[in-house]
Amino acid sequence: MNKALVALAAALAATSLSLAGGVTPNANGYLVLPLAPVLEQAQTQGVLDGMPVRFGAGPSAAAGTEIKVMSWARPGDLRGWGIPTPRMADGRPVSLTPEQTCQLALRYTLESLVAQARRHGAKAVVDVVSYNDEVVLDSPTSFECIPGRASSVVNLKGRIAAQP
């Protein structure tokens, strides 16, 4: 068997095992993933640049205007991880897993959310939830992502706050 086919088979097996390893799509086919691995990344902290972002809707008397953002990442978008692109034996790039693509989409969406909040003069973003088709995932520890072969999408909405 040729080395390129072996490498491709290994990459596909890793993706399949990754999905089988505890992350299962919900009834809509969306993935619900933990926030912590993304929020703890140095690249995400750089994107937030000190702006507090609080997930989970709650009674926020100081909260103001609602903002909505969405962004996506592609399975071949390894630049967002800040690492050299790993390559197969034949030179093609290795794709991200669905979970990694969703995590990258979350970082890109957080970047847009924070930028929009700053344009409004906000000091924080609170009551942040992920949503799709107006179905809201209200969680302080998880987010929802629409995985796809070409790209994965994360939608967030929250309220700007004048105080952190």
Rank of each mutant, 00 (worst) to 15 (best):
38 V>D: 09
38 V>M: 12
38 V>E: 10
38 V>S: 15
39 L>E: 08
40 E>Q: 14
41 Q>D: 14
42 A>E: 15
42 A>W: 09
42 A>K: 14
43 Q>Y: 14
43 Q>D: 13
43 Q>E: 15
45 Q>H: 14
45 Q>M: 15
46 G>H: 12
46 G>V: 08
47 V>M: 11
47 V>T: 12
47 V>Y: 09
49 D>T: 02
50 G>S: 11
51 M>Y: 04
52 P>L: 05
52 P>C: 04
52 P>N: 06
53 V>A: 08
53 V>I: 04
53 V>K: 04
53 V>P: 04
54 R>A: 11
55 F>A: 09
55 F>C: 08
56 G>S: 08
57 A>L: 06
58 G>T: 03
59 P>E: 13
60 S>Q: 08
60 S>N: 10
61 A>E: 12
62 A>F: 06
62 A>W: 03
63 A>H: 03
63 A>I: 02
65 T>I: 05
65 T>V: 06
65 T>Q: 13
66 E>Y: 00
67 I>E: 00
67 I>H: 02
68 K>V: 09
68 K>E: 07
68 K>A: 13
68 K>G: 07
70 M>E: 08
70 M>F: 14
71 S>N: 07
71 S>D: 10
72 W>D: 00
73 A>F: 02
73 A>G: 03
74 R>P: 04
75 P>F: 01
75 P>N: 02
76 G>S: 09
77 D>R: 08
79 R>E: 09
80 G>S: 07
80 G>D: 01
81 W>G: 05
82 G>F: 12
84 P>A: 10
84 P>L: 06
84 P>H: 02
85 T>W: 04
85 T>N: 10
85 T>C: 07
85 T>Q: 13
86 P>C: 10
86 P>F: 10
87 R>Q: 07
88 M>V: 01
90 D>T: 12
90 D>H: 13
91 G>F: 11
91 G>P: 11
92 R>A: 14
92 R>N: 09
93 P>Q: 10
95 S>A: 15
96 L>R: 15
96 L>S: 15
98 P>V: 04
99 E>C: 07
102 C>R: 01
103 Q>K: 02
104 L>D: 01
104 L>N: 00
104 L>P: 02
105 A>H: 01
105 A>D: 00
106 L>R: 06
107 R>V: 03
108 Y>D: 00
108 Y>K: 09
109 T>P: 03
111 E>H: 14
112 S>G: 11
112 S>H: 12
113 L>W: 13
113 L>A: 11
114 V>H: 13
118 R>G: 08
119 R>N: 06
120 H>D: 01
120 H>Y: 11
120 H>W: 03
120 H>F: 09
121 G>W: 01
121 G>L: 00
121 G>D: 00
122 A>K: 00
123 K>L: 00
123 K>D: 00
124 A>E: 01
124 A>P: 00
124 A>C: 01
124 A>M: 01
124 A>H: 01
125 V>Y: 07
129 V>C: 11
129 V>D: 04
129 V>M: 07
130 S>F: 07
132 N>D: 13
132 N>V: 12
133 D>N: 15
133 D>M: 15
134 E>T: 12
135 V>Q: 15
135 V>D: 14
137 L>H: 08
137 L>Q: 05
138 D>F: 06
138 D>P: 05
139 S>I: 09
139 S>E: 07
139 S>V: 05
140 P>F: 05
140 P>S: 11
141 T>G: 03
141 T>P: 03
142 S>E: 15
143 F>Y: 14
143 F>A: 11
144 E>D: 05
145 C>G: 03
145 C>N: 03
146 I>L: 04
